[in-house]
Amino acid sequence: MIIKDIKVGKITVPLKKPFLIGNKPYNFSKEVILKIITDNGEIGFGSAAPAPRVTGETEDSIVGAIKHIAEHIKGMDISCLECITKTIDECIRGNNSAKAAFDMALYDLAAKRSNIPLYKLLGGYNSDILTDMTIQYDTVENMVSAAYEAVNDGYSNIKIKLGKNPENDLERVKLLRKAIRKGIKVRVDGNQGWSPKEAVKIIRKIEELDLDIEFVEQPVKAWDIEGLKFVKENVDTLILADESVFATPEAFKIIQNRACDLINIKLMKSGGIHNAMKIYNMADTMGIKCMMGCMLESKVGITAAASFAAAKSNMIISDLDTMLYFSEDPIVGGATIEGNRIILSDEPGLGITDIIGWEEISI
């Protein structure tokens, strides 16, 4: 399989209700969708979700990076995946979401070349995974209502977004934990909103009140590795690093410093599956469990992330609920969801055959 052509386009998908990023509500999700076309007519699909506040990438910057990368890899042979991913990593600095789009499409093609689903190519440990449901920061009443709804829909793992007001975050945890019946696992995302001392104070109080929190995600600023380690060493609750682990260099520093108990891997942060695998292997070697996370992504990115998560035995937690936020699904094929289970297709690759409403962008 030789890379003959690369096409890029976008989809705009309405959301069931506004999604808050920072303090700004979004009613639509805009995503860049990539198609790599080979000399035998096979198509590999990949996607990039613009997230300026996290990855620093906008739709325009992603398209520009894709154009630049495409010029370097056209004509290369899919059979040497390492050759292509190395070229992509070296031809442009950063731009990890754009790189992830290429990476997904390449792995999609590699699995199709072997005529097996991607999750089997990556390890095949499971063919389905459980995802949690994230409760966005809102009024306490709305958060409790959303938690009730998620539990009634069959979710056994709930993640609560906090961090905007440390002074009342503990009260929110108390009220939400009280509203969610025993047996439902509750996770707390500090969202970089606490100082190290605030985090220790809040988490210790959670422990004293026996609120049964599974773990706390990213309690301090992403850059504050010492602060993250301080929190981890001064509480009993497990601490998960998210924004602190962007790609492989950050993952190495976090693991080297034993600054967390768990690591959240996201394809948009790491630059795709091949770099996610490096992070996973470092964590696995050092006995650190992993969670698979995502941005506001359609079923293209979620299927790729779920394929990786299902393939690996040390990927014990998944936070891949964003495709449930869409009021319609433009992706034909790919993973399906039943309650809180994401079930992977046994079709070759990602199992995606078409993108409805895909608008091509000239590059």
Rank of each mutant, 00 (worst) to 15 (best):
S114F: 15
Q136H: 06
D128N: 13
D103T: 05
F102E: 06
Y137L: 10
T131W: 07
K120G: 07
T131E: 05
F102L: 05
L106K: 04
S127W: 12
D138M: 05
R113W: 12
E141G: 06
L122Q: 04
Y148W: 14
N126I: 04
A111M: 05
N115I: 04
S114C: 12
D128C: 09
G124K: 09
T131S: 05
E141W: 01
N142E: 12
Q136K: 03
Y148L: 09
N126S: 15
M104Q: 15
L130A: 11
S114K: 15
L118A: 01
A147F: 11
N126Y: 14
S145W: 09
Y148G: 01
L122S: 08
M133I: 03
I129F: 07
L118P: 08
K120R: 15
S145G: 12
T131I: 00
D138F: 00
L118M: 09
Y137E: 07
K120H: 11
V140Y: 14
N142T: 02
G124A: 10
A147R: 09
E141K: 10
G124C: 09
L109R: 06
Y119S: 01
L118R: 03
L109A: 06
L121K: 09
D132Y: 00
A110W: 07
R113K: 15
L106H: 05
S127P: 06
T131G: 00
G123D: 07
L109C: 10
K120L: 12
L109Y: 11
I135M: 02
R113F: 12
I135R: 02
L130D: 11
L109E: 08
S127T: 08
I135Q: 01
V144E: 11
M143I: 02
Y148R: 13
N115H: 12
A110Q: 10
E141P: 00
Y107A: 02
A105G: 12
D103N: 09
A110L: 14
E141N: 13
I116T: 07
M104E: 15
K112G: 07
D108A: 05
L122R: 07
N115Q: 13
P117V: 07
E149V: 03
D138N: 04
N142P: 01
D132M: 01
R113I: 02
S145T: 07
Y107K: 02
L106I: 11
Q136A: 09
L118I: 00
P117N: 06
P117W: 10
A105S: 14
R113N: 11
Q136R: 10
Y119T: 00
V140E: 10
N126Q: 13
R113E: 14
A110G: 05
E141H: 08
L106A: 07
G123N: 11
D128I: 09
N126H: 13
A101Y: 03
L122F: 13
T134G: 06
I135F: 03
F102A: 02
N115D: 15
A105L: 13
A146S: 11
G123K: 13
N142I: 01
D132I: 00
V144F: 08
G124L: 12
F102N: 05
D103H: 02
A146Q: 13
S114R: 15
V144L: 11
I135T: 02
I116C: 07
Y119C: 01
V140K: 13
G124V: 08
D128G: 07
E149F: 08
L121P: 03
Y119K: 00
